[in-house]
């Protein structure tokens, strides 16, 4: 049986490769190949430069370009050791993790319920309230700094400088986009499933957990990646609402960028370390990201 289908597949699927045609039979485009190759090199070169520079000694960095490293040498791992011993980047790496994980997951909990209500329930003011979401998505977060610093600061709750303030702010700022993305996705789900759950006597709370959440995984993952990148890479909120003891890796890196003289050789290594986690997250979950972002969110 399997032999038969295999043989059939072989004969029908693979016409002999002709020059200038790709495996799927489309015409190979030389222009596309060349232009894309150039663009890829252009897009990657700056990052490669950072990586190579981070692996070179202080003198080598200062005297010759990184592209000469192949013949000029100067390779060393010293900078990475230095970053962890001589700068605050090592400590702040942990802070970044502690800030980013709760600030990524908690908003999803709240937003998913709201998105469910907007997708599957009828109520007065639904349109107006959702338009409010569209509006606050555009509002610059700068509006929040002074009032929130007053509210969370020593004259208010006194929690400015602690993780909780940052978790709270990221949860609030991430909420509109979360509701918007999740609702766009949920409204593409088949309504018949919800209807049948209802007939079975399931409450909204049960329908939400048993049906909607499992079906919305791509959108949940897409938002989680977006929010994680945003929180990890954020400079402003971390800089203003955390202290030097618990600042994030991005704030430490910014401090390093401003420094002159001693320690500048650690900058490339520090920058590379700060990029590592978001890159891993991004590339392992890329699939979800693209699917969740493009489903329902955009219409051609």
């Amino acid at each position: 049986m399997s032999n038969l289908t295999d043989a059939a597949a072989l004969t029908t699927q693979k016409p002999r490769r002709t020059r200038g045609l790709m495996a799927d039979g489309r015409q190979r485009s030389l222009t596309a190949i060349i232009v894309m190759a150039v663009l890829c090199v252009l897009w990657t070169l700056p990052t490669v430069g950072l990586l190579v520079t981070s692996l070179r000694s202080r003198d080598a960095q200062a005297q010759t370009g990184w592209w000469t490293a192949l013949w000029n040498g100067g390779w060393t791992m010293e900078n990475y050791r230095g970053v962890f011993n001589g700068t605050s980047i090592g400590d702040s790496f942990l802070n970044s993790v502690i800030v980013a994980i709760p600030a990524t997951i908690i908003p999803i909990m709240f937003a998913a319920f709201a998105a469910y209500a907007f997708s599957f329930m009828n109520f007065k003011g639904k349109d107006i309230l959702f338009i409010l979401i569209v509006i606050v998505m555009v509002v610059p977060i700068q509006v929040a700094f002074q009032p929130m610093l007053n509210l969370l600061g020593p004259n208010g709750l006194g929690i400015s400088g602690e993780y909780i303030g940052v978790w709270l702010l990221h949860t609030g700022f991430g909420m509109p986009l979360a509701i918007y993305t999740l609702r766009n996705y949920m409204s593409t789900l088949p309504r018949t499933v919800i209807e049948s759950a209802k007939i079975d006597g399931a409450s909204h709370f049960q329908t939400f957990w048993k049906l909607i959440v499992p079906m919305s995984v791509p959108a949940l993952a897409a938002f989680a990646i977006l929010q994680f990148l945003w929180v990890w890479n954020d400079l402003l909120i971390a800089k203003l609402f955390l202290t030097t003891q618990n600042s994030t890796v991005i704030v430490s890196l910014q401090g390093l960028l401003g420094a002159q003289g001693q320690g500048t050789e650690y900058l490339p290594a520090g920058a590379f370390i700060s990029m590592l986690i978001p890159m891993i997250v991004f590339f392992t979950l890329q699939r979800y990201f693209v699917r969740g972002l493009t489903a329902g969110a955009v219409k051609g």
Binding site: L39, L229, D234, L253, S274
Partner: peptide
């Protein structure tokens, strides 16, 4: 090729500034 162009999406503004300050 898409992955190459994607790559900077995961990089922070500060990280990108560090990269381009070298350029």
């Amino acid at each position: 090729s898409k992955s190459f162009v994607f790559l900077p999406m995961a990089i922070s503004f500060v990280g990108a500034s560090a990269i381009w300050s070298l350029v």
